[in-house]
């Protein structure tokens, strides 16, 4: 039976869909059966990040309205055998068509066939957010080291604590700029974790490869050498219950030759 996790943040643009795509992919790479559900009705983009846009025939609203069966709407990612599926959001439907009860029903139908169900939550705390948290056993809260993001995450954690979830919410600090954090220009990992008072699931460094990967429709986590990929892989291992140390915040100093040839500029 699957564990359902909602990936939420309150604030937009902090990397919810990117995290859902990469965490889902990382779990599939670790041989877990994963279904990702995009709940951002009207502004779907999980399919774009996964490179599955051209394969969508039905969406979640079609399922709810009875125009399609659930298994017909699931988009299989062929790169991972039978391990990774996406239930896409509708792009041109009224976002209020979906109710929390619909999401709970869909999640319960999917549970027997998967190990993990990841619910990609829309930004905000309105109907879409309520739909997403209704179907979840636990929450992963994403925030970046910016005060507006931390403040919104705080609001979301407050709401999550008031709902009766089986698992306590956990935090991912995304898009960490090591240089700024080390120089004290942004809140550091400890400060954010202490402020939000929830368990830290992992950290991910700012990485231009994430944007490139999203543009290409190939989640960055598929590149084992990448820095952000390592962060997502560690997070997936922690989701599976492994104990993995946090990645170091220390910056790699470029060697003489890297300086000479300017190759270090592309690394973070």
């Amino acid at each position: 039976m699957a564990i359902s996790l909602v990936i939420t943040s309150g604030k937009g643009g902090v990397g919810k869909s990117t995290t859902a795509a990469n965490l889902g992919t990382a779990l599939a790479l670790m041989n877990r059966r994963v279904c990702m559900i995009d709940l951002d009705i009207g502004l779907r983009n999980l399919d774009v990040i996964m490179g599955l846009s051209n394969r969508i025939i039905y969406d979640i609203v079609d399922v709810v309205m009875g125009r399609a069966q659930l298994h017909q709407a699931l988009v299989k990612d062929k790169r991972f055998d039978d391990k990774l599926y996406l239930l896409p959001a509708a792009q041109n439907s009224d976002k209020n068509v979906l109710t929390p009860a619909n999401v709970v029903d869909i999640v319960n139908q999917l549970r027997p066939d998967f190990d993990y169900i990841l619910l990609d939550c829309p930004a905000g705390i309105e109907q879409g957010f309520q739909n997403a948290i209704a179907g979840a056993d636990g929450a992963i809260v994403i925030c970046t080291p910016e005060i507006p993001s931390v403040s919104d995450a705080d609001r979301v954690v407050g709401i999550l604590e008031q709902t009766d979830m089986k698992l306590a919410p956990r935090l991912i600090i995304n898009r960490i700029n090591r240089q700024m954090m080390n120089s004290g220009d942004t809140m550091d990992v400890d400060e954010i974790t202490k402020h939000l008072s929830i368990g830290l699931l992992g950290i991910v460094f700012e990485d231009s490869n994430v944007i490139l990967a999203s543009n290409r429709g190939v989640p960055v986590v598929m590149d084992p050498e990448d820095n952000a990929s390592q962060g997502y892989r560690n997070i997936a291992r922690r989701v599976l219950g492994e104990s993995v140390p946090l990645m170091t915040l220390k910056e790699q100093k470029p060697t003489f030759f890297q300086k000479l040839f300017g190759r270090h500029q592309h690394k973070h």
Binding site: S151, D152, D154, R155, V157, G158, I159, E161, S197
Partner: peptide, 11 residues
């Protein structure tokens, strides 16, 4: 009343 809770944003 002794209050020891965390009062979060929006609460």
């Amino acid at each position: 009343h002794v209050e020891m809770a965390t009062i979060r944003s929006g609460q």
